[in-house]
Structure formats: C-alpha cells, structure tokens
Amino acid sequence: MSSLPYRRAGRSGLDLSAFSFGLWQKFGTDYPYDTQREIVLHAFELGITHFDNADRYGPPHRAAQQFFGQVLRNDLAAHRDELILSTKAGNPIGASPYLRGGSRKSLLGSLDHSLRDLGTDYVDIFYSHSPDPGTPLDETVGALVSAVQQGKALYIGISNYPTDRARETARLLRRAGVPLLVHQPRYSILDRRPETTGLLELAGDEGFGVVVYSPLAQGLLTDKYLDGIPAGARAQNSAFLKPDAIDDAYRKRVTTLNKLAAQRGQSLAQLALQWVLRRPEVTSAIIGASSAAQLDHNVRALDFPALTGDELAIIDASDE
C-alpha cells in the first residue's frame, strides 16, 4: 500500500486519508464486479483507507455495501484494522416508514442490515444521512449514541445537515459523551454553501471534521462538458446532474477555470480537488472513479504546488 497524506478529523484522535473513496455511483449490480473490485483494491494500494458507503447506494439499494462486503471478505479481510468503513442511514430505501427517516427503528435497523451486508461487526463511522424534521432530534441523536454504546460504530457523523441543525446535533452528542466526528456536505468550486452558511466555521468552533462529497460537482469540474454533452456522459442519464446545468454561463466559467489549471500544468479536476482541500477544516474529499487510471489521475492532484492568493482570486472571480 502506498501512502497518502493523512489529516486529522477535527479535534478527535482520528486521521483520515486526504482522499476517501465513495461508492455512491457505479457500484451497483449494473456494473461489472471485476471492474469494481479492481478500482477498490487500487484505491487501497494508493493509500486510500476510508471507504464511504450507505444503505441507499446501488442500484438496487444496498448493492454497493453487498459488493464491498464481498471484496472485504475475499481480498481485504486481513487489512480490516487499517480501514475506515462508513455507512449511512436515513434516506429513503423503500416505501415503509421504517425504511427512511431519523427514527430509532429506522437508523438502528438499517445499521444492523448494513453490518450484515458488509460482513463486519462494526463500522468506523455511522452517519445520519440527512436531517429528518419529522423526528425529534433527541431521538435521532439517541439512536446514534446507542450505535456507539452497542459497539456497532466507533464514531458518529452527519450528512447534509444545515448549519443550525448541525450545531444542535453536535451539542446533543457532546452532552451524551459521543462527540460528533465529521459532517459530510456537498462542497466544490461550484457549490460553496459550506462557506456561505457558516458550516466550515462551525466545524472549527465545535471541533468536528468535514468530509466533502461531489468535489468535482458530478463531473462538471472536468473538461468533459466544455464542448457540450458527449455521448454516454452522466448528464444524459443521472438523477443528480441535469443537462440544463450545462449552459453558456457554466461553459464560460469552467473555460476560465480550465485555462488556470492548464497554466499550472494540471487538469481542471486536479485543480478542483486541490481547491476543496485548501481549507484546514476539510479532513478528506470523497472521490469516485470508473477506472483505475482515473483514480490515479485524481490522486495526483496532491502533487501540485498549493494554490496562490492570485490563483484563488481568479477562481473567485470566475463566479462573477
């Protein structure tokens, strides 16, 4: 296994690799197992030790966890103590009220199922995947605390929580003796809400880390869409990226960013990954890949010099 830089998760004692590997997309039953396995094992060879999963990931739901469980059993079992495995619960995975939301039954029931899918006795990080305004926050927090007390999770995270609710969750967890380890928001050059809503500032104040997802904005922060939408691109068939996002304003902005990246001798994707990791509050950036070569390319973002003040100003101005 190679070595990536590690970054401390807030004021905890846990370090995470600067890049985490996410199984959100392309790890369902609609992709070849051997290809998926090659990518995951290569990620570990590169030094990525944090693998991010959820009960919802597939398709179908839970397929990504079942896939990873097979790889863990067949290839990575001897390295379990070197891995940080995370899972999430709370987003809908079925019509039943017990298959969604932040209730005690939903969260702990899903966690038990996830442990069976993964073939492990515990996960390192258990997330509430999204806030549930229909469930008292005390109940959601109580379920997360129970997961740690029962030995089924070592740490607790939250994902997609607005700043105010994250603040209250952190307070309740701290009072229960199970501090919030990480928050997982969407964050990229094209989506700066963790900055503008005060979430990054809250992370510093409360002492939790930030593990960001979609740092490449579903592929928008690559050169793929500079000349339109190529055949087979994600924008043609994804529920998370619509063709109307690729308009003239987008192309103008990304052309500016791509020119800056070229001047630095790197790709736009590498520039975008460096940009999210520039913040000290950010512990790790979740990346995916459709090939081992793509993974190699993205990880090389760490090889370039830090962004200068002038370069950061150009990135900021591209939004004007």
Rank of each mutant, 00 (worst) to 15 (best):
P5C: 00
R7E: 09
D15Q: 13
L16D: 03
L16P: 01
S17K: 06
F27H: 10
G28H: 11
T29V: 04
D30C: 05
V40A: 02
L46K: 12
T49D: 09
A54H: 01
Y57G: 04
G69I: 03
V71F: 08
L72R: 07
R73Q: 12
L76E: 01
K88P: 04
G90I: 01
G94T: 09
Y98Q: 15
R100N: 08
H113W: 11
D117I: 09
G119T: 09
D124M: 00
S128I: 06
H129L: 03
H129Q: 09
P131Q: 05
D132I: 04
P133E: 04
G134E: 14
V145H: 06
A147F: 01
K152F: 02
K152D: 06
G157I: 01
D164T: 13
A170Q: 03
A176Q: 08
V178T: 11
Q184P: 08
R186N: 12
I189H: 04
R193M: 14
P194R: 07
T196V: 12
G204T: 04
G207Q: 07
V210A: 02
V212Y: 07
S214Q: 07
S214C: 06
T222Y: 08
D223P: 09
K224R: 15
G228I: 12
A231T: 15
A235S: 05
Q236I: 05
S238V: 10
S238A: 14
F240I: 12
F240S: 11
D244F: 15
D247I: 09
R251W: 10
V254R: 04
T255G: 14
T256H: 11
L257V: 00
L257T: 02
N258S: 15
A262M: 05
R264V: 00
Q266E: 15
Q270D: 05
L271C: 05
L273Y: 09
V276Y: 00
R278K: 13
V282H: 08
A289F: 02
A293I: 10
D303M: 12
P305L: 03
P305H: 13
P305A: 13
A306S: 15
L307P: 04
L307M: 10
D310S: 14
A317K: 13
